[in-house]
């Protein structure tokens, strides 16, 4: 049973980690809690269903299922990146020098707007993922893992490694790190801050979209309010790992996923969400810089 719970927790955690990356990157650069990030994940899940539904209707999935899934993933990542960029331009950019409260509130506005936009355009009912994936899997050590879970784990790890390399090895990545450290200084050194911020939102939203599509495949249904809870949990993961730190977000996501699975099984399944919130409060109070975060001074 313990081993099964580890598998359950890892799958959950991988998804949290992917969403958490978006939070952490934006926070690292703008010191802004992008409340709307959870909604981008929700948009991604919807796009996954819409695009795969379209591909099925033109008979593409019958030709090659893996290819269809990859196309769905890529397309919905592109769309969500566009959404991420648009959100930044409309709701955050004009408020870049405003006090902290303002962008936080406009983020809540974006979140409410997107939820209702999706509800109005896609209906309030649950949307069901096309039933093309079977619940087959492997059994070992008395625990079962489906092929889909294996796919989610591998895909998340690949994306996280890719992101890490991008940040560490490329010029743009370097620019992002510089901006995160000191925005004014970076701009004095000739870094185009606006571009860096846009790219941060594009990458973060793309990863959230990937998480959304995978969740839609894994659970088989989405609705327009999945973004809120997922967003809060991913934020918890980001804070747990140390907000602003990319390996921290990954670690935080995995820990949170494991903790939820184990907490729900050994303590109480009714309080499953409370573990995340409780953990969040405890970390913020005892160790606000998180597990892998750097010490930051004033957070006002």
């Amino acid at each position: 049973m313990f081993f099964q719970q580890i598998i359950n927790g890892l799958t959950l955690g991988a998804v949290y980690a992917l969403i958490a990356l978006g939070y952490t990157m934006v926070y690292g650069i703008l010191q802004l809690i992008n409340f709307a990030h959870g909604e981008v994940y929700m948009l991604g899940a919807y796009l996954g269903i819409i695009i795969l539904g379209f591909l099925t209707s033109i008979g593409f999935t019958a030709i090659s299922l893996p290819l269809a899934i990859i196309i769905t993933l890529v397309l919905s990542m592109i769309f969500c990146s566009a959404y991420g960029m648009t959100i930044e331009k409309i709701a955050y950019k004009p408020l870049r020098n405003a006090p902290r409260l303002s962008p936080l509130i406009s983020a809540i506005g974006v979140s409410i707007f997107l939820q209702n936009f999706v509800m109005l355009s896609q209906g309030a009912t649950d949307r069901v993922f096309p039933p093309i994936l079977k619940a087959e899997g492997l059994t070992f050590l008395n625990a079962r893992i489906t092929y889909l879970q294996i796919f989610i784990l591998i895909a998340s790890v690949l994306m996280m490694v890719g992101l890490h390399l991008f940040i560490m090895k490329t010029k743009l990545g370097k620019a992002m790190r510089a901006t995160a450290q000191d925005r004014k200084m970076a701009s004095l050194l000739g870094i185009d801050i606006d571009q860096v911020i846009s790219i941060t939102f594009i990458i973060g939203s793309g990863l959230a979209a990937a998480a959304g599509v995978m969740v839609a495949m894994y659970y088989g249904l989405v609705n327009y309010f999945i973004g809120y809870v997922a967003g809060i949990k991913a934020f918890t993961a980001a804070v747990l790992g140390g907000i602003g730190s990319i390996p921290g977000a990954m670690l935080g996501g995995i820990i949170l996923g494991l903790m939820e699975a184990l907490g729900a099984s050994y303590i109480s399944s009714e309080y499953k969400d409370a573990f995340a919130f409780g953990l969040l409060i405890i970390i913020l109070i005892l160790k606000p810089e998180g597990l892998l975060g750097r010490q930051v001074g004033d957070r006002s």
Binding site: M1, N8, Y219, A261, L262, A264, S265, S268, E270
Partner: peptide, 18 residues
């Protein structure tokens, strides 16, 4: 036991039940 309405992942509690 209870689960949370709106949650999507019930594998933890199902593993216990199993």
């Amino acid at each position: 036991g209870g689960i949370i309405q709106g949650d999507k992942d019930f594998k933890a509690v199902l593993t216990v039940v199993k």
